[in-house]
Design a protein around this nucleic acid. Structure first.
Lengths: 149, 149
DNA sequence: GTCCATTGTCTCGCCGAGCGAGATAATATG
DNA sequence: CATATTATCTCGCTCGGCGAGACAATGGAC
């Protein structure tokens, strides 16, 4: 190992971003009397909403890598804080649908908004081929990190 | 919110990568009877080693966002598993220097190696301006996510 | 229809990660 | 040499997350 390699630097950079981002999440969590997992849960739920998927308890648990007991606990906490609403699915009454409260979204923007804005700002100075390169790289990284073989 | 914006897609992509990467870390941790924090600790220590910084217990705690008690616990666990060695700093005998065992590095490579390789592979097809763009973007993201104001 | 396997969520009891408070030892500063 | 400061560790506790299993709704097979 420890072959320097110009490409490896980029991977290390990417990893550093993930590490630091994790710390920011933890700060946000502490600030609003939550835990990292709760924040990750909210993020997953917002992603689902954006994608038009309906988010059930089981689905959320899978996203977070929790078992059902842990998942119930996360949802309980978020519901108690008013960041979340449980609704039994009328089509399949075993399932519980989860909806993020608007207030929670606002809190998230207040904290992560500037951070996102700063990141996005750089992209505005990029030309077409450069943004394409970034997108292509991130897709590759996502695929690499998603495939489990 | 929910202004689509072509740049935002990239940020979401980046965030997805961080989320998935977190899950892979958790899998690696479980596989080797560790916890996510322990893996993050090892990563931080390897970064320090690569950078030539010497890693003390307190420094590690700061990187992980843990207090001293929690930090001691992490180090205890890693030492018990043989992934780590404690050494009292001869220059300042209050400090404890941490060194990652080679065996732990091998385990990490076995798991994350292919994942890194897949990511790096894409970069090989990139021309100079494209890799530069990726690097520039990641630097910006890192800066955005590191500044705490 | 009636049974039964399956699926989705929740309850209970326990383990242990991480915290706060404070002890201890080594180093600086007067 | 006394005292403040720094770095790490110990103790006791809280509570997130797990395994096991309960319970309800669903979808077959017959």
């Amino acid at each position: 190992m420890s072959e320097p390699g110009p490409e490896l630097e980029i991977v290390h950079l990417l990893r550093k971003v993930t590490v630091e981002f994790g710390l920011r999440q933890a700060e946000f969590a502490a600030l609003h009397h939550m835990h990292s997992t709760d924040v990750r849960a909210l993020i997953c739920l917002l992603d689902a909403e954006r994608a038009g998927t309906d988010a059930t308890a089981g689905w959320l648990g899978a996203q977070l890598g929790l078992n059902s007991a842990g998942t119930t606990a996360v949802i309980d906490r978020l519901e108690r804080l008013g960041h979340l609403t449980r609704t039994r699915d009328p089509r399949d009454r075993r399932r519980v649908l989860l909806a993020v409260d608007d207030r929670a979204v606002e809190l998230g923007w207040a904290f992560f908004g500037p951070l996102i804005e700063n990141t996005v700002a750089v992209l505005r100075d990029f030309d077409e081929s450069e943004t394409a390169a970034v997108r292509r790289f991130l897709y590759a990284a996502h695929r690499a990190v998603t495939s489990i073989p």
